[in-house]
Design a binder for these strands. Structure first.
Length: 778
DNA sequence: CTAGCCTTGATG
DNA sequence: CATCAAGGCTAG
């Protein structure tokens, strides 16, 4: 957040070992708040995004009906909750798991075993250490210390709870004397308050849970969120129980490595502001003014637009002007954006004259990053999609390439698209004049040539403007007539193609599905069916060539590739099990929320299919290319690439398997918390099923148990290696935050690049719509 | 300032 | 009435 970044250049002035400014008053704070709107602001902001820990990603128990169903299932399966608590099992689960200061956990566990008799849970139940085995969930996501309960939306330790409270209540202003990347763990959490608070926010602690009026007692209105968090815990615990049953033997206590997962979440100060949602709870009347400040801070619409504040708030320095400013901000949000768009438009002409590819990415030089014409991020596409329509720039001149235009001819080839019937519907946004749109047009035109009325829920008003919608509703292509898998007519293509073929086909021995939960079998079948159709598009992708040695990193080509991958992903999703049963508008929302993570998961999976030795220091690109990250010029991008490879390595060590990969994609996609989604119970239902199936599968198919000792990765971060069946389930889920962080950084990179083109680089293409595009409704 | 423990009070 | 997530207190 800019409050902090404004100090970035001053950080080094502090020669004290203390990494925070001990005292700061409100005035000072106000100044910092204002700093976000001053020319010293840059985009190297602390993400205000709530990463939504996997709790949020995987909450499965928000709905009362689901609750009942889940509870019933639990009782049937495990009966780990013997009492007649009619409140919810979640509370019990939480209490059980986090209460490590007494023996209730053990006794409860014993009790459940007794109740179940020998049939289900007749497994040795250690008298001690259950809390340890549950410990992966009992570690504070900020510092790894012992969790004391739900605090400000998360399970955190007591110290981080207090720290968060003090910071918010007292409007603390911290500074980092280093690079704002300090490792936060139990022993070092005091060393840098800046990074600690940053991490608090990033793991999802909720500013709005700190009460401005300091009223004590009671419960806040985040019940559903908390319940969902509990639900995940419950889910994981159930897997523990199931695993214990399966194991039929003593489980090696292991609670040692979960904190390493959390610490691996340390992110740079550049994580995307996208989708950070400090939700303003209407039923929470006593919002702390701090929240509003942070809310605005997270909103990059303010970044680089000092005039906004002055227009809106004549007394930005006055403390009272930020107090109770919520409604003010809300009511002016739209206006803000409109103003901003006006600025973007008015400045676009001159702005396009100096084009650099992501020079500002992670840039800490305010003189460079200050750019009043910089368009905003679309922090929350679900709030703002309707504000910036692709038609806003529809009249824009097509050539914004400037120096990079040459990359079109030198960097990419999209020839020989199979059976290309380039007849995009009139008005199709995919016949984009944007550079990436041009690069991608062949594939997209080919695909979106015939949007149909198959989507009964389609919003007609947007059918001509949304690439996502068009793709979702496009007519099913004939598979049989155009399926390279059935012919040899592609054998003449490059080895890359074959390589992709192997990857995308991801052939799976269905004989192995005997021991796979039924739902995963269905996922596999669904996925396999799609892989057969997907092959049609591979040739187009494989002909892309990325030249990392270019000064600009060949970013246009990379965007083009990503654009195509977006298309493939949407195409995959719309044909996927369960997803195709969801209303189109909800499909769009889910995809817009999950696309980047799914994309990354796909890439990681792909790379994991390759021998590690064959792609050391390389990113296996979707086009089959090995991209040596050492060729990346921009250090920040290189760092992102390194973090991506770290994820790859982490997954490798998990011995991630195909059903697990599929399940993870579904879990990311089926997020009932996505704003505006109306079929949340249905989505939750799917999510829960997948979660259960994944847990069951990892229990039955954990072949990584042989790797019994955690090993350290080459990096400073430690990788958690599952030491038993239970942990693999947790490890897989716990990789999601990492994936999300990489995704957010990637999104930020893309947005910055797009900004440099005044939003026209990706205008009209699917990638752009995913990134910034309009919403289909609302 | 930190962090562990205590008090409070809405909730179900 | 138990729960639990807020805020408060205070030794270190």
């Amino acid at each position: 957040m800019s409050k902090y970044e404004s100090h970035q250049t001053n950080n080094l002035r502090s020669n004290s070992t203390k990494s925070y400014s001990p005292e700061s008053n409100d005035d000072e704070f106000e100044e910092h708040i204002d700093d976000r709107n001053t020319p010293t602001t840059n985009d190297n902001s602390i993400s205000m995004k709530t990463p939504q820990s996997i709790d949020d990603l995987l909450d499965v128990d928000d709905n009362d009906n689901q609750n009942e169903e889940n509870k019933e299932e639990i009782e049937n399966d495990n009966d780990d909750d013997g009492d007649a608590d009619d409140d919810d099992d979640d509370d019990d689960s939480t209490r059980l798991s986090i209460d490590d200061q007494n023996t209730s956990e053990t006794t409860r566990h014993k009790k459940s075993n007794e109740k179940n008799g020998p049939g289900v849970l007749d497994v040795p139940s250690p008298d001690v250490g259950l809390d340890v085995k549950f410990g992966f969930n009992d570690l504070c996501p900020v510092c790894g210390d012992k969790v004391s309960g739900f605090h400000y939306g998360l399970l955190t330790c007591e110290s981080c709870k207090g720290f968060f409270k003090r910071t918010v209540q007292n409007k603390k202003n911290y500074q980092c004397i280093d690079k704002q990347q300090c490792q936060i763990d139990k022993t070092q959490r005091k060393r840098c308050a800046f990074c600690r608070f940053k991490k608090c926010l990033q793991v999802g602690m909720k500013l709005e849970a700190v009460r401005e009026n300091r009223v004590r007692g009671g419960r806040n209105k985040f019940g559903p969120l908390y319940r969902r968090s509990r639900a995940l815990r419950q889910q994981i615990m159930r897997q523990h129980f199931v695993s214990m049953v399966k194991a039929q033997q003593n489980i090696m206590p292991n609670g040692n490595s979960i904190d390493t997962v959390h610490t691996s979440l340390d992110i740079t100060s550049v994580t995307n502001g996208n989708s950070m949602q400090v939700k303003s709870e209407p039923e929470q009347p006593n919002l702390h003014s701090f929240q509003h400040m942070y809310s605005s801070l997270q909103n990059p619409t303010n970044v680089g637009h000092p005039s906004h504040v002055h227009h809106q708030n004549p007394h930005p320095h006055h403390p009272s002007s930020t107090h109770h400013s919520h409604h003010y901000q809300s009511s002016h949000h739209q206006q803000q954006q409109q103003q901003q768009q006006q600025q973007q438009k008015s400045s676009s002409t001159s702005a396009s004259t100096s084009f650099n590819v992501y020079p500002d990415f992670f840039n800490t030089n305010p003189n460079v990053t200050n750019n009043s014409r910089m368009p905003s991020f679309q922090l929350n596409p679900f709030n703002t999609y309707n504000k910036i329509s692709s038609t806003t720039y529809g009249h824009s001149p097509p050539s914004l390439l400037l120096p990079q235009t040459s990359s079109l001819s030198t960097g990419v080839s999209t020839t020989n698209t199979p059976t290309n019937n380039s007849n995009p519907p009139s008005g199709s946004s995919n016949s984009s004049s944007s550079p990436v749109g041009q690069l991608s047009s062949k594939l997209l035109d080919y695909q979106i040539s015939s949007p149909t009325t198959t989507g009964t829920n389609t919003n007609n008003s947007t059918s001509n403007t949304s690439s996502i919608l068009s793709t979702l509703t496009m007519q099913q292509q004939s598979i049989a007539s155009n399926d390279p898998m059935n012919t040899d007519n592609n054998t003449g293509t490059s080895s890359i193609y074959f390589y992709n073929h192997q990857y995308l086909a991801a052939s799976y021995d269905m004989n192995e599905t005997n021991n796979i939960p039924e739902i995963l079998t269905k996922l596999i079948e669904s996925d396999q069916a799609y892989r057969c159709t997907e092959v049609r598009y591979i040739e187009d992708i494989q002909q892309i060539h990325i030249d990392l040695t270019r000064d600009d990193g060949d970013i246009l080509v990379v965007c083009s590739l990503l654009d195509k991958l977006c298309f493939l992903m949407v195409d995959w999703a719309r044909q996927s099990l369960y997803f195709k049963d969801i209303q189109i508008d909800n499909q769009i929302k889910l995809l817009k929320a999950a696309w980047i993570e799914i994309l990354i998961i796909d890439l990681i999976w792909k790379q994991c299919q390759q021998p590690k030795e064959s792609c050391l220091n390389c990113i296996v690109s979707a086009n089959g290319q090995l991209l040596n990250i050492n060729l990346i010029q921009n250090p920040a991008v290189k760092k992102l690439a390194e973090r991506y490879l770290q994820c790859v390595n982490d997954f490798r060590q998990l011995q991630w398997q195909y059903p697990e990969y599929l399940a993870l994609k579904y879990l990311v996609l089926f997020d009932p918390d996505v704003q505006g989604v109306t079929e949340s119970s249905l989505i939750e239902d799917v999510q829960e099923k997948i979660t259960n199936a994944l847990g069951e599968y990892t229990t039955d198919h954990n072949n990584s148990s042989s790797t019994s000792n955690p090993t350290k990765t080459s990096s400073s971060q430690q990788q958690q290696i599952p030491t038993n069946e239970q942990e693999k389930f947790a490890c897989i889920l716990l990789k999601l935050p990492d994936v999300r962080l990489v995704g957010n950084d990637l999104k930020k990179l893309l947005q910055l690049v797009d900004r440099k083109h005044d939003g026209k680089l990706l205008d009209g293409c699917l990638l752009g719509e995913m990134l910034n595009g309009l919403q289909s409704n609302n």
